[in-house]
Amino acid sequence: MENKHFTIFSGSSIIVKGLQIRLEESNITSIIKDRVESARLGGFGEHRTAVELLILESDREKAAAITKEYEKEINS
């Protein structure tokens, strides 16, 4: 069976890292896709919120609740 990743959250690197830590505490592995750093290395610009957090499709339901709670906290 093929494991597919999808983007569960995007934002600035510090906000994305905060969610990644929360997910790791619940044994959900993730990958940070940092388009800002890639653009910088390539010699062009990218929007500061172009950092994505990807997780496995199989972790979607478990991660959705954690992500929803995290979004409430950062937006309050």
Rank of each mutant, 00 (worst) to 15 (best):
A64D: 14
S12V: 04
N27C: 03
G42C: 02
V36Q: 04
R35A: 05
S76G: 05
I21T: 10
A50P: 05
I74G: 04
E24P: 07
T29L: 05
I66K: 11
R60H: 08
I31M: 10
E57G: 10
V51E: 02
E46D: 02
S38P: 10
N27F: 11
R35V: 06
R35H: 05
T7I: 11
E71W: 09
M1V: 10
L19Q: 06
S76R: 06
R60G: 12
S26A: 01
E69T: 14
D34P: 01
K72A: 11
L54Y: 05
I21V: 13
H5P: 06
I8R: 02
N75I: 12
G45E: 13
E71Q: 14
I66C: 03
I31F: 11
A39Q: 09
E57H: 14
E61N: 11
A64H: 10
G18F: 13
R48Y: 15
L56D: 10
G45P: 08
V51R: 15
N75G: 07
Q20T: 13
S10L: 08
I31Y: 10
I66Y: 04
R40M: 09
G11R: 13
I14P: 08
T7W: 13
I66T: 07
Q20H: 09
S58N: 08
A50C: 10
V16I: 00
G45R: 10
A63T: 03
F6N: 08
E71V: 15
E37H: 01
V51P: 05
L23H: 15
I28F: 01
L23D: 00
D59Q: 03
K62V: 00
S26C: 04
D59S: 12
N3D: 15
D59T: 05
I66Q: 07
R40L: 08
E69P: 07
T29Y: 00
R35Q: 03
K33G: 01
K72N: 13
I55W: 00
S76K: 14
I14S: 10
I32N: 01
I14R: 00
I21M: 13
I15F: 10
T29G: 11
M1D: 00
S30L: 06
K17V: 01
L53N: 10
L23N: 03
G18K: 08
S13G: 07
E69Q: 14
K33Q: 11
H5F: 14
Q20K: 01
S10R: 02
E46L: 09
L19H: 08
F44R: 00
S30V: 04
I32C: 03
T7S: 06
N3M: 13
L53V: 04
F6H: 03
G11Q: 12
L41G: 02
M1S: 06
S58V: 06
L54H: 02
E24F: 03
I8T: 04
M1N: 05
R35W: 11
